[in-house]
Structures are given as structure tokens and as C-alpha cells.
């Protein structure tokens, strides 16, 4: 058993762009669910809009990187408005239903053959990385140490991805300790009480939906940069993985989604490496290597369940916040 390779592969995930993308999407969800109490089950839809908005702008319209970025963000603002205008006046659970359905509509719209020339249908899109790579100020070569050694493009991508995550974390931290954040948290507790104090609850919920959605959209772009944009990546399971990360780290925290994403990906990679090699070594005779590939999700599920049972507030959550029955 090559433990070195297993641990080194797991360590790679610690700072991978995918981890950064999940962290950012979970941060957006923390704004929605943890701070505002909005049950958004369509974060995958926001991410898809980011990925496709970026890829289509570059491939079809030849936009520069910043233009493609703005197209993605604009698309998610419009998406948030379409979701929010009819549902934010209603009870919280309606938003959950609408968002989960809307995210599926977005995914299926990108899958349909009708727009295959633009969206690439089920095969998705690729070949949009050159514009981003051209902005790379790093000279060719390898950077980093140990398991974190990467070529110039991957290093550049990691630097940009984690800078965005840190920037977004600071932004969320600052805005949640401002009077705006106080209103937002008040809405989570009881929106009628906040309304009775003269705050336009509807407008605040809309701002929160847009803010968290834009974070999800940028996460979608980071998610798309190391791979191709394929519609099947944006299924509802993506949203649920992000919820798992959020609960793991702590719903109403800033560091929780980031550390939660790191733990999630390191664990996933560790189990995947461990199970694959255990099957190879004949430790699990009842299992094929294909079945082993699925087992990692079961093990991650068990690990997350244990954390939620024994530390329900998440890793960074405040124990006091859960000590009271709502």
C-alpha cells in the first residue's frame, strides 16, 4: 500500500482550484442560508450560469476575460431577480422549491440539442482557457514544493482562485458585521419583527439573494477553469455537496465554508485513493474497482454525519447559537 501517494494526492486537494470554487460557492450559500435564512437549493444553477456565461462569452463572442466575467455575473443577477421577484414575498420553503427547479431548468437548457452550436449540448464546452492563461505573469517552469508543485498555469490559477476566495471572505465578514448584516440576521430570526421596525425586508432578501448568487457564479467560473464545462457537473448533487460543506464548517460563519471545503475535498481524495488501492491489494474482495469509486461518497457521507451529530453547529459555528430551541 502506497500511503505516501494517498496522502500526497489528498494534500493536493487542499489548495486545488476546485476546492476554492466549492469554498466560494459555500460562502455564497452561507450568505443565503446561514445569515439570511433563505433556502436556496439552486446554487448549482448559479454556478452553471457562471461557467457557461464565461465560456460562451469567450468562445462565441470573443470577449476578453473581464468581459466574460461581467457577462457571467450579469446573468446571475438576472437569474436571482427572476427567482426572487415572485418567491421572496412568500414563505421560505417556496424559494427552496423554485430554486431547485430553476437550477434544473438552467442545466437542461444548456443540455438541449437546440442550442448545441453555442452550448455544446451534453458534451459541453472547452478551449476557453487561453485568454486566462495569457494573463499569467509567471514565467514557464514549476512552482511550489512537495505535493503542491505545479506548472505556471496551474499556479497562476491557484493564486487567482484563492485570492478571490480571500477577498470574498473579507467582504462577507465586513458586510455581516455592519448594520446591513444586522438587518439580514434579523430577517433570519423573524422577518415580521424586522418589518415592524421599518426595514424593507423584501429588498434586503433580494440583495442577499443576488450577493450570494454572484459568489456562486464566480465559483462556477473558477470551477470551469481547470476542466471543461459539462452540464452534468451542475446537477442538484453539486448543490447538496455545497450544503454538506456549509454544515460541516458552520452555516453562519465566514471561515466555515472555506475550511469545510478543504476538509471535504481532502477527505474525498483520501478515501478515493485509499479505497482504490485497498481494492487493488485485495483487502476488499467483495468489491470491484468501479464499486470502490462509489464507496468514497458513502464514507464521506458517514464522516459528515458524524460531524453533524457530534458537532451540529459545524466546526466554526457558535455552540450557543444552537443551544436554544427555535
Amino acid at each position: 500500500m502506497d500511503w505516501g501517494a494517498i496522502f500526497s494526492n489528498a494534500a493536493v486537494e487542499l489548495i486545488s482550484p476546485t476546492t476554492a470554487a466549492y469554498a466560494l460557492a459555500a460562502l455564497g450559500l452561507a450568505v443565503h442560508f446561514g445569515y439570511t435564512g433563505l433556502l436556496n437549493f439552486g446554487q448549482a444553477g448559479f454556478m452553471a450560469l457562471g461557467a457557461y456565461g464565461y465560456a460562451i462569452s469567450i468562445l462565441t463572442f470573443g470577449f476578453p476575460v473581464w468581459g466574460a466575467f461581467l457577462v457571467g455575473v450579469g446573468a446571475s443577477v438576472i437569474f436571482a431577480l427572476i427567482l426572487g421577484i415572485p418567491t421572496l414575498r412568500l414563505r421560505a420553503d417556496y424559494l427552496a422549491i423554485v430554486t431547485i427547479a430553476a437550477a434544473e431548468i438552467v442545466r437542461l437548457l444548456f443540455t438541449t440539442n437546440t442550442y448545441a452550436s453555442v452550448t455544446g449540448s451534453a458534451n459541453g464546452l472547452s478551449g476557453y482557457k487561453n485568454e486566462f492563461a495569457a494573463l499569467n505573469p509567471l514565467a514557464d517552469g514549476t512552482y511550489g514544493f512537495g505535493p503542491f508543485t505545479n506548472n505556471a498555469y496551474d499556479t497562476w490559477l491557484r493564486i487567482v482562485a484563492w485570492s478571490i476566495v480571500i477577498l470574498a471572505a473579507l467582504l462577507v465578514w465586513q458586510i455581516m458585521r455592519s448594520p446591513w448584516g444586522r438587518v439580514i440576521k434579523g430577517i433570519r430570526e423573524d422577518e415580521d419583527a424586522v418589518r415592524a421596525l421599518g426595514k424593507n425586508v423584501y429588498a434586503y432578501k433580494m440583495q442577499s439573494l443576488i450577493f450570494g448568487g454572484v459568489l456562486g457564479t464566480i465559483a462556477g467560473m473558477i470551477f470551469a477553469l481547470p476542466r471543461a464545462v459539462v452540464p452534468s457537473n451542475y446537477q442538484t448533487t453539486l448543490t447538496f455537496f455545497i450544503y454538506a460543506i456549509l454544515l460541516l464548517g458552520g452555516a453562519a460563519t465566514v471561515l466555515g465554508p472555506i475550511i469545510g471545503s478543504m476538509i471535504f475535498w481532502v477527505l474525498l481524495s483520501f478515501f478515493s485513493g485509499f479505497v482504490a488501492r485497498a481494492v487493488e491489494a485485495g483487502w476488499l474482495p467483495f468489491m470491484t474497482s468501479i464499486q470502490g469509486g462509489q464507496l468514497r461518497f458513502i464514507l464521506v457521507g458517514v464522516a459528515i454525519m458524524l460531524i453533524v451529530i457530534f458537532r451540529p453547529q459545524g466546526i466554526f459555528g457558535n455552540k450557543k447559537e444552537l443551544a436554544f430551541v427555535r
Binding site: 444586522r182 440576521k185 434579523g186 430570526e189 419583527a193 415592524a196 426595514k199
Partner: peptide
């Protein structure tokens, strides 16, 4: 309100500032 609407998971001071 008849059924008091204190914002439970905000501090007393935050309730006031709101």
C-alpha cells in the same frame, strides 16, 4: 406583537440597534 418577537439569536444590543 402579541407573541413576542425578540430576535433570539441576535444579542440584546443588536436587537436594540435594529
Amino acid at each position: 406583537f402579541q407573541l413576542t418577537k425578540a430576535l433570539g439569536l441576535l444579542t440584546v444590543m443588536d436587537n436594540m440597534l435594529l
